[in-house]
Each structure stands twice: as structure tokens, then as C-alpha cells.
Design a protein around this nucleic acid. Structure first.
Length: 315
RNA sequence: GGCCUGGUAGCCAAGGGGUUUAAGGCAACAGUUUGCAAAACUGUGAUUCACCGGUUCGAAUCCGGUCCAGGCCU
């Protein structure tokens, strides 16, 4: 991938969980004068550090001479866990951060495992102007799937029919589609505006190795980093409800169940480990889909390989 | 050695002569994805019920034997 013009050059590090995205992003940021924008839907929350793998320590590089370099990062620790965050909020802030970094003549490095967020930024999704309508959602939530699909058909039969079967059975999605289509605007799926020049680097491991890494990291977070206490504090000190913790998923969900004594420690570890593996699988599915849509992801096996790509890209 | 109970997909497990061309759950795999996305949701599996033989129009289901596992007895 060459850059012909002086388009803005932006780096993207994506991939599965436990594949070393943060470490690579920090190294590249240091080497190529960059700043990191986290593309992680859970790292935006304060106090959720271990479970989301923020690894804030990694942003501080120490050198033999005793010198320290702090790599700037964005979109980490931006709201309280009880504040609802979502795609639009993230996208707006991420776009702002990109501009800001470019203005400093530095390289924006988008790094994170939330496929939707990353793709929305890179492909410049033209998000609907229709926001969330709490009352409408509550009302629609009382209906069953069939009723929701019928209602959708009434408003836009073509849209309803074109939905994938899995979406037709997904209440949460159906409600959002109704929310948007009720308004005049509807969905506009065209990418708009100038496209920046992106180099996308993908990180993953063969599945068996990835699973081993996931398990080892989990045990370490549990035994050495006291992730359980983090979750307990979220509930007790920061007032995060069990329901919300469940919705955060993975470590927050399963450790909550353990704290509520609904799971034994061993059950919690086993189920959480499996759930993280399944999450990694879903991340791969997303990225494969993105590739099928025509996006080039440069799957890289080593830092060196990544550095070479970036060097070439920034030339 | 004798008696009893059980052997159904990678794991747990229902069914106990025809309505089973064998429920369900978990895992695995594949996929959906434009305002909760670490979320939410969808799809896929046994020509076969330890093995051999028998009864029967018909057996995973009944009978006999063999093997395996667990329990009890001497």
C-alpha cells in the first residue's frame, strides 16, 4: 500500500485479545513519533483496568540512562463506568483525537480490539443522526420478536426482508432498526468525506497458542493482579450494579457471578476462560468479514515485520 | 469368584418395543454485526445408542453372552 498524495497517514493496530496490540502500538509510537488512540469499548471506563487490559504501565518507556518517555494515549479512562458509552460517542472523540495528533505532526495510532469501533472510524461510517429514544425502547421491549419484525416490515419492507436471519431474531438490533427507520432520515450507509490513508496491521496467533496465552494471562490477572478486588471495588466503591457488570461481559460478568457466590472459583475460571476464547473467535470473525469487504489487513508475526511495514508506509 | 447398577455425539444427559428418520445443555466450528458490540443474535452434529448373537412384522429399548466402569458380598 503506497501513499501517492499527502493524505493523512494513520496507523491501525487491530487483532484478537491477548495478541500484544498495546505493546506493539507503544513501540511503534515511540519509533515513529506517534500517539495512541484506544479503540476499545471497555477501556473508556475508569477503574476498569486489569479486566480490560489497559496496561497503562506499558505506555511509560524506561531507558538505561534513567530517561523515561510517556507515550500519549487517548480514549482511555474517559467516563465513569455508570456512564453509558457507545459507538457515536467514541467515533466523535476518536476523530477529534486524530485531528489533534495530525496537527501536532505526529502519527495517530489506533489500537484496540473492538472491531466495530475501528471499522467505523477507518471506513468513516456515516452514522444515523437518530439517537437513542429511551421511552421508545422501553415500549418496544415489551413486544416480541414477531411483532417487532412486523412493525419493521410496515415501515420498510425491503429493509426488513434484507435483514440477515440472525438479526431478524435479535431483539436488541430490531429495536434499534425501528428506532432509526421511524424517523425520516433512516440509515445512510455511504462512507463520506475524504478517506485518510490507513495502514492496518493485524495481530493474532494460531488458535491453540492464543488459547494458551489467554489462559495464562487470566491466571496472572487473577493471582498476581487481584482482578477480583477490582471488580469488587467497582461494585462496592463505585456503585456499579451487578446488572451493569454482567453487561460489561467477560471478566466483569464472571467475577461478579463468583462474588455473588453463583459460581465457585474454579467454575468461574473455567467459564471465563472459555468466554474469552469465544470472544477472540468473534473478533476474528469480524476482521475476516472486514477483509471480505475489501479491506487489507496486514497480518504480522513480529515487531520487526510491523516496523518495516510502517517505515514503508510513512515514507 | 458371586450379586447389583450402568455403558447413548468431545463432555453432561433424556428416552426403556412402533408417534425417535435418537430430546436438551455445554464445548467446538461457521456466521450476523452502522448508537449497549467484551454486548446481542443465528446456523451446524449420532444412518446410530459398548460389542456379538437371539426374540419380534419391528429393538437404543426385551433375552443370552462378551468386554468395560462403579458399588456391594465372600
Amino acid at each position: 500500500m503506497f501513499s501517492i498524495s499527502n493524505k493523512n497517514k494513520i496507523l491501525v493496530i487491530t487483532g484478537t485479545t491477548a495478541s500484544g496490540k498495546t505493546g506493539l502500538a507503544v513501540k511503534l509510537a515511540h519509533k515513529f513519533n506517534g500517539e495512541i488512540i484506544s479503540a476499545d469499548c471497555r477501556q473508556v471506563y475508569k477503574y476498569m483496568d486489569i479486566g480490560t487490559g489497559k496496561d497503562l504501565g506499558e505506555y511509560k518507556l524506561k531507558f538505561p540512562a534513567g530517561k523515561e518517555v510517556n507515550i500519549p494515549y487517548h480514549l482511555i479512562d474517559v467516563v465513569h463506568p455508570n456512564t453509558e458509552y457507545n459507538l457515536v460517542k467514541w467515533k466523535i472523540k476518536a476523530e477529534l483525537a486524530v485531528k489533534e495528533i495530525l496537527n501536532k505532526e505526529r502519527v495517530p495510532i489506533i489500537a484496540g480490539g473492538t472491531g466495530l469501533y475501528t471499522q467505523a472510524l477507518v471506513d468513516n461510517y456515516d452514522l444515523s443522526v437518530v439517537g437513542q429514544d429511551k421511552k421508545l425502547r422501553e415500549r418496544l421491549d415489551k413486544k416480541n420478536i414477531k411483532q417487532l419484525v412486523d412493525e419493521l416490515k410496515k415501515i420498510n419492507s425491503k429493509f426488513a426482508e434484507n435483514l440477515h436471519v440472525s438479526d431478524k431474531k435479535n431483539k436488541r438490533r430490531l429495536i434499534r432498526y425501528l428506532e432509526v427507520l421511524r424517523g425520516a432520515a433512516g440509515f445512510s450507509q455511504k462512507a463520506s468525506g475524504d478517506k485518510n490513508d490507513y495502514l492496518i496491521i493485524g495481530l493474532t496467533y494460531p488458535r491453540d497458542i492464543l488459547k494458551k496465552r489467554i489462559y495464562e494471562r487470566l491466571i496472572e490477572r487473577l493471582e498476581k493482579e487481584d482482578m477480583i478486588r477490582e471488580v469488587e471495588k467497582l461494585h462496592k466503591k463505585y456503585g456499579v450494579s451487578w446488572k451493569r457488570l454482567k453487561n460489561f461481559g467477560l471478566e466483569y460478568k464472571f467475577i461478579s457471578l463468583y462474588l455473588k457466590k453463583e459460581l465457585s472459583y474454579d467454575e468461574m475460571v473455567e467459564k471465563l476462560n472459555i468466554a474469552i476464547g469465544q470472544f477472540a473467535k468473534r473478533q476474528m470473525t469480524w476482521l475476516r468479514r472486514w477483509e471480505k469487504q475489501g479491506t487489507e489487513i496486514n497480518w504480522v508475526k513480529s515487531e520487526k515485520e510491523a516496523e518495516r511495514l510502517v517505515e514503508n508506509f510513512l515514507k
